[in-house]
Design a protein around this nucleic acid. Structure first.
Lengths: 252, 252
DNA sequence: CGATAGTGGCGTATCTCGTACACCATAATG
DNA sequence: CATTATGGTGTACGAGATACGCCACTATCG
């Protein structure tokens, strides 16, 4: 089971990079029967399952059933379930084929646009946020997004090191915002959840321990959800971009 | 198993808030044998296990063994494993008993200090980052940190709504930074992992698809890891604080 | 003081999963 | 045609979550 612990090397990363494919899908066929299964079919089926029922629904048994094959057949194409998850995650992060190059001189807008597109990916594949993953982005498509952000940032006066830092900063912001927002989608799709959330909190948060929160809640219609609107998304992003702009002015 | 999907209400939240305790630990004992197990003992044991071997090592069986009881005994105190995880997560987020009130007039420093303390919690309990959780902070201790940040932010001219947004922004930043950083600790503790990471990437990232990255990697000793130092932590935090300061000047 | 009833711990059983292994059919190469 | 690597499959095992029913214990009430 998804044990992310004490692995010698990020599992499945090589597979995602097509470095150590169990069996490379080439036109020249070596001896043996023609493969009916392909890594691509497996991944597509698994992603479809995850999209509709969440990561918890992705078991090798269910994927195999959906493919009409035996469970253990999958192991001919994937070393372990964790491997599969890594490849799924990367596939779900695929950027649209024709990403326009960032608009020169308007790097903030470019970054904001990229951030929005990444967010949309998370919305389409919320289960990606359920994958316990650590460390910086390390799969091809994730890094393609990073590449794009670097293109925009190259128009600033930030140092290379700071450009890298800015990339991870924005990446992380989008991910966190998605984690915050995609709860209702995951749960049962509806803003009802947000309302419930505040109703529940208002009931259990007592003024003696949470004076600031209680004041906020009572003050006005702050009981509206937080983080669930486009303006909320813009707020944090704009703070970050403003901070980066300040650094750009100083030239570092 | 950790199915975070399609629950009617965040599992175990009530337990963390002591709202619907399976059995409330009161001094007045109702009929029945004296409880040898308590929720506190269970949670402490489970956290200890998770601290040492990661979230994947936390099974009801192992927790029970560590407690010297039968597996199913735990169900008298916890409705499900997911419930237990929620309570564990909250317990691991407990702030130190005597959090000093934020220094008036220096809200940026106060926020930075709080961010650092939250980060330390993640460092002590990296498994918290392995818990698939969505939505805004919703357990007592998480919100206690929020309360503290609100205290600092009340010294700004930000609108209440924006103060809430700022809290989630900082919270998310720390979490993401921890997710980024705590990889080596999770893996096998050592900066070796970071070096491996860049070595691997430098090998698979070709200049045709990743020109910016390749230029950065070749340029200088940028091959140093990213995100793993105190300065890296400070970078993103300072960008966010700068962005908030700008908003404070404008008074919104 | 003894009956009652709610309660906590436990043994057993079931269902789902990830995965190792051995078997067999297949097809490209010599 | 023989060889041999290869892909799909059936079986098996161990771990894990958890429902269920039993029993022993104790606070209260008659």
């Amino acid at each position: 089971m998804g044990e992310q612990h004490r692995r010698p090397r990020p599992a499945g990363i090589e597979l995602a990079w097509h470095v150590s494919r169990v069996r490379d899908t080439q036109d020249t066929h070596r001896p043996g029967p023609r493969p009916g299964l392909t890594l691509e079919r497996i991944v597509a089926t698994a992603i479809d399952l995850a999209d509709r029922e969440g990561l918890g629904a992705v078991s090798l048994a269910r994927v195999a059933t959906a493919l009409g094959t035996a469970t253990t057949s999958l192991y001919r194409h994937v070393r372990s379930k964790d491997d599969l998850i890594v490849v799924m995650r990367d596939a779900a992060a695929a950027p649209p084929p024709n990403l326009p190059d960032p608009d020169p001189g308007r790097w903030q807008e470019s970054l904001a646009g990229i951030a929005g597109q990444i967010y949309d990916l998370f919305r389409r594949h919320p289960w990606v946020l359920q994958v316990p993953a650590f460390g910086p982005p390390n799969t091809p498509n994730d890094l393609l997004w990073g590449e794009h952000m670097l293109k925009a940032l190259s128009q600033t006066r930030l140092s290379p090191h700071n450009q890298l830092r800015a990339v991870t900063l924005i990446f992380g912001y989008v991910r966190e915002q998605a984690r915050l927002t995609l709860d209702p989608i995951i749960a049962d799709g509806g803003d009802a959840a947000a309302g419930d959330y505040f109703r529940f909190l208002a009931r259990v948060m007592t003024p003696d321990r949470y004076p600031m929160f209680c004041r906020l809640f009572a003050d006005q219609a702050n009981t509206e959800s937080i983080g669930y609107s486009a303006e909320d998304f813009r707020f944090g992003l704009n703070r970050i971009l403003a901070g980066l702009t300040e650094l750009d002015r100083e030239g570092d």
